[in-house]
Amino acid sequence: MFAEQLAGNLIQGLVLGSIYGMATMGLSMIFGVLQVVNVGHGAFIMIGAFTTMTVFTKLGLNPIFAIPFALVIGMALGFLFYYVVMQRLIKAPELASLLATFSIGIILEETVKLTFGSEFRGFNWETGKLDLGVTVLPYSKLIAAGGSALVALLLYLWYHKTRSGTAVRSVIEDSEGARVCGINVNWAYALSFALGIGLTVTSGVFLTMFIPVGINPYMGGGYTVKAFVIAVLGGLASPYGAFFGGLIFGLMENGSYTILATIKGVEPFALTRFFSFVTLLVILLIRPTGLFKSQ
């Protein structure tokens, strides 16, 4: 009974974790290149969720088709905000960029609220279910998890096998040196910021496939805090490290429930959250720059 529950929760945790990872890669990418913590991260996830819902309910298309839309919308927003705001703040104190991204998040949330209202929405994409005995998984969740893993792989290949990816990596390592070598550093910044936002908006699509309810202008807040923690687990500046950070976080959140539920007189669900944050602190105590090495 206990073992079955634990196994079931760990499987669910792995699926959830890969989506958490996907939802953090954009954050890590932006931090890695621009040294900017995107406090408005959750708002971009929310944009992805609304994109998916619109594609499904208004256009009547399979949510998978929301991915290209989300990527394009996200990158467009990324370039826009980079050239209008962020590029002026590269040399400014850390606080300035924190506040700027926070304000951008609010602008997005309030605009969506005015357009769609503040109702919690959702949709129902029926894909059938896979019964594993210890737990049940709808195929929509598996598609979302598989898609997330694929994106992480593609990102890895882009970083290591393409010219633009290599250029971005060299900027991360030494922006002055890269400039001397003739790399257009501002373009590399713009591209990474846009790609980071694009990834984040796309992760909203996967997240909505996983949980197709609760879509609301303010839904991103909780994910922002989780993404911060996962990003640190993964080394903060490493996008695919973030993916593994997500897996670990998902496993911990779901797996610890079964164990904590055996303690009398406590609320195990709230304690799983406590446990995740304690783990974060312990990891930081041992390795002050996260589990995976930053590049």
């Binding site: 959830l16 949980i211 807040g221 909780g222 959250r273």
Partner: peptide
């Protein structure tokens, strides 16, 4: 009888225990 915290986005572990 179990609770979940405010702002939760995934109830799977709790519902798995409930199902049992």
């Amino acid at each position: 009888e179990r609770t979940y915290p405010k702002g939760v986005t995934d109830l799977t572990p709790l519902l798995s225990a409930l199902k049992a």
